[in-house]
Structures are given as C-alpha cells and as structure tokens.
Design a protein around this nucleic acid. Structure first.
Lengths: 109, 109
DNA sequence: TATATTAGTAACTGAACAGTTACATAAATT
DNA sequence: AATTTATGTAACTGTTCAGTTACTAATATA
C-alpha cells in the first residue's frame, strides 16, 4: 500500500484513534467501542496506523494492546511549522504580503 | 465537497504546490510546469487548495496568480505538536513509556 | 478583427478508499 | 472438551480520487 504519514492522518477516524491511544493503551474491541463503525473497520484503521509506525502493539494473551507512537508526527509538525511566520505575524502585515504586487519571478514574464 | 485541511495536504503534489507558492505567486501555467502532469490536473489541485483556504488568488488580466496562505496549516501544526513531548524526550524513556505495563484503564477489565 | 494564450470545467476512467458481512484462528473460560 | 471471546482477513460494494482529453470563455496580441 505504501502509505505515508500525511495520508494516514487524513482520515478523521484515524486522527481520533491516535488521540485516544496517546495516553492509554487499549485492545481493539475497546478502541472500536469509541466509534460508530464495525470492529473490522477499526481494525483496518489500526493496521494502517501500524504500517506507518504511528502505533505500537503489545500482545497480551488473545488481546492486542495498541498505543500511539506519535514520533512520526514530528515530520508533519515540522512541515506545517515551516510556515509558522505566516500566522504569527500581524494580520495586516500578512494581508500586505499576500497581496504583494512585486515579489514574483513571474511578474517579469 | 467539504474538504478539510488534513485531507488537502494528504496529496504530495498539493504539499509541493504549497511549498512552491509559499515564497512567490505564480500563474497556473507556471505552477503546472513544475509538475509531471497536465495543466487541468494542477488546476484541480489548486481548486481544492482554494476551497480549503490554503491559497489566495489574485486576478491579473487573463492570468490568475496563486499564492500560499498557510494560516490554515496552523491547525495541522498544533494537532501534530500536541505530541511533541513524545519525540523530545530521550528515546529510552519513550520506549519505557510505550511498553508500560500499567497505565491502562483497560488493564483492570 | 482574427489568432494565440491562459484558465476553468465537463465527461470519462481506473485505482484507491472506507465501510460492510462472513469466515478463520487463537486464547480464555466453563 | 466445548464454548466464548478477541482479533485479523478475505471478499465484496459504493464512493471518492487523481488523472486524462476535449471543450468553452475570456483576455491579449498581431
């Protein structure tokens, strides 16, 4: 399937699962009970998260305890934060920048 | 279509477009010339980015100058950064946390 | 005015996606 | 040993997605 982290977190259910499993480990059935969909559907989401390294699994008897491993989210945070300056600067300065007439290589074409 | 930002940035081409238009404004044709796909395909990506408020458009004659407006990425950065502690703490401490036996409501069930 | 350029969109296509139900397997319980 | 429980997976389905080509509209240029 070759999924990347950005695609994994595109699904709101998967983001919710990450949030749910950030502070506690839970078996699949317990995870599924938090969502309005079948257990196999949740199982699939967990599989995708696992393939991306976003969760860790610990076997315990017939249960599988899942837990978030959000280290891979660093990539996401870093990418998005590259543009931090855009939202930290004052709004009017930003608007000016966005409407800038010059500052375009294209302008010369 | 009701897309959200997380879905918008799931596509690698769209992330590349955001990067490309972060420091300069460009017309569609110029944007497309940076990618190995047709102009209409890029046009669609730009439409999606526009619908999410991730780009701003300035009309100039028959051209439309696109530019990134990464303010919406704040949401992404904030969500991913919530787990910052996970990757800033020392690796062995993290491993311990991830393998923690206790610390699970489920454990009592 | 005729032509070339820039851009958007409609219609289509094949692949990927997110869900379902049914089944298989392994561990725990009776 | 038989049954229940927890989980994963296969097969299927309808929808969404990302791309294509063909067409249209609007602006600029010769």
């Amino acid at each position: 399937m070759q999924r990347d982290v950005f695609q994994a977190i595109a699904d709101p259910t998967r983001r919710a699962i990450i949030d749910l499993l950030a502070e506690q480990q839970l078996p699949v059935k317990q995870v599924a009970s938090n969502f309005d969909m079948s257990r196999p559907a949740v199982s699939k989401h967990l599989k995708i998260l696992d393939e991306c390294g976003l969760v860790v699994i610990r076997k315990k008897g017939r249960k599988r305890l899942y837990r978030s491993d959000p280290r891979k989210l660093q990539e996401v945070a870093e990418w998005a934060s590259r543009y931090k300056k855009f939202w930290t600067q004052k709004l009017d300065a930003l608007e000016m920048l966005l409407n800038e007439e010059s500052q375009s290589k294209e302008e010369k074409l």
